[in-house]
Design a protein around this nucleic acid. Sequence first.
RNA 1: AGGGCAAAUCGGCUUAUCGCGGGUCUUGUAAAAGGCAUGAGGAAAGUCCGGACAUCAUAGGGUAGCCUGCUUCCUAACGGGAAGGCGCUAAUUUAUUAGUGACAGCAAGUGCAGCAGAGAGUAUAUUUCCCAUUUCGGUGGGUAAAGGUGAAACGGUGAGGUAAGAGCUCACCAGCAAGAUUGGCAACAAUUUUGGCUAGGUAAACCUCAGGCGAUGAAAGAUCAAAUAAACUUCGGUUUGAGGGCGACCCGCCCAAUCGGAGAGGGUAGAUUGCUUGACCCCGUGAGUGAUUGCGGGGCUAGAUAAAUGAUAAGCUAUUACAGAAUCCGGCUUAUAGAUUUGCUACAUAA
RNA 2: GGUCUCGUGGCCGAGUGGCUUAGGCAUCGGUCUGCAAAACCGAGUACAGCGGUUCGAAUCCGCUCGAGACCU
Length: 147
Amino acid sequence: MNKLYKGFRKKPFFCDVKLVNKRESHLKSQVVISQLFSKGKVITTPPFRLVYLSRKDLKTNGSQILISVPKKRFKLAVSRNAIKRKISEAFRLYSSDLKAFLNKTNTHLAIGFIYIGSRELRSEEAPKKMQEALEKLLKKLKENEIE
RNA sequence: AGGGCAAAUCGGCUUAUCGCGGGUCUUGUAAAAGGCAUGAGGAAAGUCCGGACAUCAUAGGGUAGCCUGCUUCCUAACGGGAAGGCGCUAAUUUAUUAGUGACAGCAAGUGCAGCAGAGAGUAUAUUUCCCAUUUCGGUGGGUAAAGGUGAAACGGUGAGGUAAGAGCUCACCAGCAAGAUUGGCAACAAUUUUGGCUAGGUAAACCUCAGGCGAUGAAAGAUCAAAUAAACUUCGGUUUGAGGGCGACCCGCCCAAUCGGAGAGGGUAGAUUGCUUGACCCCGUGAGUGAUUGCGGGGCUAGAUAAAUGAUAAGCUAUUACAGAAUCCGGCUUAUAGAUUUGCUACAUAA
RNA sequence: GGUCUCGUGGCCGAGUGGCUUAGGCAUCGGUCUGCAAAACCGAGUACAGCGGUUCGAAUCCGCUCGAGACCU
């Protein structure tokens, strides 16, 4: 946690965790992806479908995300890219609670965001939807923790 | 001042905060942190052509297949471009302008042309016209001017000629073929001589002629690391030439002691490189009608790998067109809101 | 990233440039029947789009759109 607080002195306007979204937080491993889709649990909130898989046996903690937009609904590469960017930006801004929880409980979480909306994601509604989805996810994770 | 057409250029900018990719510098044992500048197109698209580069193959020849098709030039090359020629269309100024053309050959050969029509290619006679004959209903022969059909019907005008006619003969005209001269690098144009009197359409039908083309694509390939099995079982063939290679086929040539089929089974899929200095861009200047190119000076301008360019706020008419690099170049085609510049053009308004 | 194929009524599907297109299933109307099925008779509905070649294009050529397959 100390690492993350390092930039806090210079930029005091933002909250307790620094908001980064680096390469390391992308989900790349084919093994993990196949496990995610075969064993993972699913939450559906209107524009997204979340697939997640939490593990405690790994040494690292934190989250790795994967974003998928179907080519069948969005023909243009430009619009697909725009949706992906909006999702990742929204996740970057509103995932601080989730990250704090994961650090506390020392879990590794793989999340897949699948966009199931039929229209393009508008930038003003993206943060609201993301917050809803993440709150739902956090609640589920806490329930599991108690069990 | 606005409208239309054509060509060219741009197709977002500024500030603040946060964030991402690779690069570089600083701090740090390291992990990492911070600073700096930089980071998506005119089409990045379609994959329709042409190259570079790489691997495989390569004594050589022929055939097949595919592509291109007026001429000369440009270019690394092209199915691209420039200039010119010819045809067609439109306009008028009637010989110019603008647009446009897969624009070699049907006078090498073969095929095709429904319906209609007498006849659709060495074709032919329905109605006419003329002659002969007649049982006066017709029959036989000659003829192709006129009517009619069709997308398309085998030159036109006049004279001679004839039973009636006909390029049957002649003159002129149109068009064709061959030759000559002149101009042009050439396509071709102009003039002229001779010929036979007419040659129809279709090659985006087969085809002929001329020219060109080896195949596969960066998921190509190279290096390193890790792992390992040129192994095992079984069947068949072989110095009396089997088998393999020359990745369409044939001739021919080469290799040569091993080759082929089946079974069971093992391993890898990570890193670096290829990767961005290039037929590059900008400026000046010379050559050329032009495409293009010579010389000099300056510049470095994405290089990711489940894949970076974003978000928020404010302002500029602005949430605002079409749209996202994946080895790299040259074209073509298609999509495209708006802005600017230049040229041409006609209309209306005002002075 | 690269390569290739296909597109004909509501569905399947034939079609060698020539009568706007064979056939089957489905739909609708009629005959039959007490009613229906089957059978029989009849009808409507199509060449993915645009442009070109040709007297004439579903067919030949070019571009565009859509769908699918393969390499990996």
